[in-house]
Structures are given as C-alpha cells and as structure tokens.
Write a protein that binds this DNA or RNA. Structure first.
Ligand SMILES: [Mn+2]
Ligand SMILES: [Mn+2]
Ligand SMILES: [Zn+2]
Ligand SMILES: [Zn+2]
Lengths: 142, 142
DNA sequence: ATCAATATCAAGAACTATTCCAATTATAAT
DNA sequence: ATTATAATTGGAATAGTTCTTGATATTGAT
C-alpha cells in the first residue's frame, strides 16, 4: 500500500534563486517539505520525507541544505533544550510553545506594539539583534 | 606560584541536605563553584574549577551533580543554540542576554507585573509551566 | 560548444557533548 | 557489624552534527 492521500494538496512554486542562494533540486525539496510540514521537523524528519522525491539524497545533504537555507534567512533553526534542532519556515518574528502532553510545537506570535524593554530589565546600552522565546506547558483539553 | 588571591573571598555555607537532596562533598563543591563563578559556566568549566578542591572528581560526576541539582531546582540549566549547556544558580525567573562581542552572558530580570499573555498571542487554553527568553546582541561600548 | 573555475552533493569518517555501564566506595538503616 | 541503598569513577557507548574527500553539476568565459 504505497499510495496515500496527501494531506496538503498543492505544489509549491519555488524560484530558481532566493536571496542569492542557488535553489538546487535538493534545496527545493528540503524547502518544500518545510513549507508543507509546518510542525517543526528535525533534520531527520526532513530527510525521511524528502527521500520520497529524491531517493538518492543523503542526510549530510539535508543538513547542508538546511544550513544554507538558515544562513540565507529563508528558514529558521529552533532548539529545545538539548533535543535535535528543528526547522521552521515561519519568518515572522515568533516564539514557540511546546505542548508537554502532545509534543506539538505551536508558533506563538508577538502582540503588536510590544517592545522588550517594557518587559525586561535589559543591561544598559544593550542592542538586541535576536530574540528567542520558548514556552513549555499544557493545553487545557476541555 | 600556586597561591592566588581569590576574587571572591567568603566561604559559602552549604547545608547537608537541600530539598531532599543529599549534599555530598562533590555536590557541595559543584554548587559552591556555581555560586562563586556566576558567569554561567559549562560542565567542563565547573569540572576544571572543582578539580582544585577535589582532584579525584570525574567529569561524569560533575554531570551527575549538575543533573541532581537541576532536578531538585537548586540550579538551572541554560542552553544557547547547540552549544554546551551552561549552569546558573540564579533561581529568580530571568532570561539571558548573550553579548556577541564579549561572549558574556548577562542575567535579565523580568519587569515586575508583566505577564506573558500581554506580550504573546498564546494558543487558547495554554497553561505555561516554563518560560525561556534568550537575547543576543551587543552592549554599546561607549 | 568547449573548457576552466566554482559550487554542490554523497558517503562515510570524525567530532563532541552527554549518557550509560560496571565496579568500587560511601552513607544510611537495622 | 551487617546489609541495603545511593553516589562516584573511569571508560565505553551514543547521537546529533560537522568534516573530508572525491564525484557531479553548474556557471561564465572563450
Ligand atoms: Mn520528529
Ligand atoms: Mn567556557
Ligand atoms: Zn516556528
Ligand atoms: Zn542565569
């Protein structure tokens, strides 16, 4: 039983080049996978997925692709504790909520008009380049 | 030249048992090191430090001690990206600012009376058990 | 189209932080 | 003292990731 109903239908159009990065077949498929599978998969998750379309791809190449995409700001790498890195195509500034019961990772948007200095006692003169917010907890089931 | 002026003078009094955890000599020294060296050292940093006082301690033991202390809520483990874990004896709820130029990690306190729901669009029904805020940037040198 | 220069890929080896394991030692309970 | 339990040690094992090297592919001149 090989055929499966794909849960996400559409083909995604990916240009030949994104912000100076050559979009090879491998990079396209890695990127496509992240766009379709928006649950923050690990490199290995992506690897297994991409193999359906590129049976000869190697895990090292998936790592290379992910790194290239991250470096060019096309996707983001997200880490939870010491677990394997996960990858996220959501480029809007957001944090992550890790549901302890289901294991699902939810994107959490920042409310508009909030700035960090309102919330945190930053060291004087600090210029923030990057913010990472990670929450752990449970979703009330009822 | 073995003698050194200690930059932090006082001996720290550590009880025999903290919140049900037996405070062995090794755990005491690991904890003492963290209290004295408050710059978020790695397990290996702690190991090298503790060896001055316990020359026979092993790295595995340092890891064991750190884990025990973390588990009992006596210290916190903090992670940056995929770097080695760091350890922090500051139990007040706080985040971390990583100065890119010096590499120094600063504790960042939350402003009083702020709650996350003001700042983030949490998924409905989310109960937050743990928050982790990490900032990267630079400190204006002037 | 041909060629040289450059970039990417694949496979496996190497690396490193951390954990596991088995044997020994220390502590606690009786 | 004896026994049971917990902690420590040193080394081996693990796992995620990175590195290396040779093969392929792509680009940009000629
Ligand atoms: Mn997974
Ligand atoms: Mn260090
Ligand atoms: Zn995300
Ligand atoms: Zn801290």
């Amino acid at each position: 039983m090989v055929s499966k109903t794909p849960d996400i239908p559409a083909e995604i159009e990916i240009p030949d080049e994104i912000s100076g990065l050559r979009m090879t077949r491998q990079r396209q498929e890695v990127y496509r996978t992240l766009m379709q599978q928006r649950n923050h998969p690990t490199a290995n998750d992506v690897f297994m997925r991409v193999k359906d379309r590129l049976p000869h791809i190697s895990l090292a190449t998936v790592y290379n692709c992910l790194e290239a995409l991250v470096q060019h700001g096309i996707i983001r790498q997200v880490n939870f504790e010491r677990e394997s890195s996960r990858y996220c195509p959501n480029l809007s500034e957001h944090g992550h909520f890790h549901d302890a019961t289901t294991g699902v990772i939810h994107d959490v948007d920042f409310k508009p008009g909030v700035n960090l200095a309102d919330v945190l006692n930053l060291p004087p003169g600090a210029v923030i380049d990057d913010v990472e917010i990670t929450l752990r907890g449970k979703l009330a089931s009822a």
